[in-house]
C-alpha cells in the first residue's frame, strides 16, 4: 500500500474514533464543543509516557484512554449540572483551559510540542477504528443504547420511568472521553509529534459539525460524517482548480493570495451544515432511513406513528 493511502486511512480512522467520542454524549442529549480538549489530554498522556519513560504503544494507549476517561468522569459531574447553552459553553471553556494549561507546562513542552518516539503503522489506527465501530454498534443495540436514546428524546419522562438519567449521561460522557483519549493517543503515535496548536477550538467545531451532519440517531451517522469529512479534501484535489477559477471570475478576487486550500474544504463544510440544518436537521442518516434500507416496513410504520407531525 502506498504512503498516500496509508496516510488517509490513518486520518480516517482517527476521525471515526473522534466522531464516536462526540457522538456518545450527543446521543444522550449533550452537545460537547470541547472535543479537542479531551483529545489533547489523550495525545499528551501518551506522548509524555512514550518520550519520558520510553514505554511501548501497548502501555501508553491504555493509559491515555484511562486518563482521559478519568478526567471526563470527574469533569462530568459539575459539567452536567449545566444544561443547554451553558453546557456548550462549559465544554468549550474546558477545552480552552486544557489548551492553556498544556501551553504553560514546561514538562509537556509548552508551545514547542513533544516528539513521540514510539511509532505505529497505519494498521493500528485502522484496527482501533474497527473495534470502536463494532463496540458502538453493539452498545446502541443494548438496553444501555435504548436508555441513551430515551434520555435524548425526553429526559423527564425517562426519569419518571425509573431510569437514572444522570448516571446514563455521566457514563456516556466517560466512555466518550475514553474514545477521545484513544483518538489522541493514536494521533500522537501515528504522527510522532504533538503540539497544542493542533488541538484548538476549530478542531472541536469540525468534529461536532461532521457528527451532526452525519446524523446522531444511529451509529451509522458519525461513520458517514467522518468518512465524508476525510474524503472531501481528496475530492477537492480534483475539483479545486475549476472552483478557484470560477470564484475568481465571479467575485473578482485579486490573484496571488496565499489562502490554504483547506479553506475551501471548510467553506463547503459550512455550506452543507447550514443547508442540512435548514432542510434535514436530524442529519443525513436517520433511524427511519436505516429501517427502510433493511426493508423493515413494519418498523418504519411504527417509527412514523411515534414521531409527532
Amino acid at each position: 500500500m502506498s504512503g498516500y493511502w496509508s496516510g488517509i486511512l490513518t486520518i480516517l480512522s482517527i476521525n471515526i474514533i473522534m466522531a464516536y467520542a462526540i457522538f456518545l454524549p450527543v446521543a444522550t442529549g449533550q452537545l460537547n464543543l470541547g472535543g479537542a480538549g479531551f483529545q489533547a489530554v489523550g495525545a499528551y498522556g501518551a506522548a509524555f509516557l512514550s518520550s519520558k519513560y520510553g514505554l511501548s504503544v501497548w502501555e501508553t494507549i491504555p493509559f491515555a484512554m484511562a486518563l482521559t476517561a478519568l478526567v471526563s468522569f470527574l469533569i462530568a459531574f459539575p459539567l452536567l449540572r449545566t444544561k443547554g447553552v451553558y453546557l456548550v459553553l462549559a465544554t468549550f471553556a474546558f477545552a480552552e483551559v486544557v489548551g492553556g494549561a498544556i501551553l504553560n507546562s514546561t514538562m509537556l513542552g509548552g508551545p514547542m510540542g513533544l516528539s513521540v518516539p514510539a511509532f505505529v503503522e497505519y494498521q493500528v489506527p485502522v484496527l482501533g477504528a474497527l473495534l470502536v465501530t463494532i463496540f458502538i454498534f453493539y452498545l446502541m443495540a443494548t438496553r444501555f443504547g435504548l436508555v441513551m436514546r430515551a434520555a435524548h428524546d425526553d429526559d423527564v419522562v425517562t426519569d419518571l420511568m425509573g431510569v437514572n438519567v444522570r448516571g446514563i449521561r455521566v457514563a456516556a460522557f466517560t466512555i466518550g472521553g475514553a474514545l477521545a483519549g484513544l483518538a489522541g493517543a493514536l494521533y500522537a503515535h501515528s504522527f510522532s509529534f504533538v503540539e497544542i496548536q493542533g488541538f484548538n477550538a476549530s478542531l472541536s467545531i469540525y468534529v461536532l459539525l461532521y457528527v451532526l451532519l452525519g446524523g446522531t440517531q444511529t451509529a451509522w451517522g458519525p461513520l458517514a460524517g467522518a468518512l465524508f469529512f476525510t474524503m472531501l479534501p481528496e475530492a477537492l484535489r480534483v475539483a479545486l482548480p475549476a472552483l478557484k477559477g470560477w470564484m475568481g471570475l465571479a467575485m473578482g478576487f485579486q490573484g496571488a493570495r496565499t489562502a490554504p486550500d483547506e479553506s475551501w474544504r471548510f467553506v463547503i463544510l459550512g455550506i452543507l451544515t447550514v443547508l442540512m440544518m435548514m432542510f434535514r436537521s436530524e442529519g443525513l442518516i436517520t433511524r427511519v432511513m436505516v429501517e427502510k434500507l433493511r426493508f423493515r416496513h413494519h418498523a418504519v410504520r411504527l417509527a412514523r406513528v411515534d414521531a409527532p407531525a
Binding site: 450527543v26 444522550t28 442529549g29 449533550q30 452537545l31 443547554g84 447553552v85 456548550v88 434520555a151 435524548h152 428524546d153 425526553d154 429526559d155 467545531i205 461536532l208 459539525l209 451532526l212 446522531t216 471548510f266 467553506v267 463544510l269 459550512g270 455550506i271 452543507l272 451544515t273 447550514v274 440544518m277 435548514m278 436537521s281
Partner: peptide, 17 residues
C-alpha cells in the same frame, strides 16, 4: 434535548463560511 441547538449549529456553519 439537542433540538434547541439547531440555530447554534448552523451559526457554526456560517462561522466557517
Amino acid at each position: 434535548a439537542t433540538e434547541h441547538a439547531i440555530p447554534l449549529v448552523s451559526s457554526l456553519g456560517f462561522l466557517l463560511i
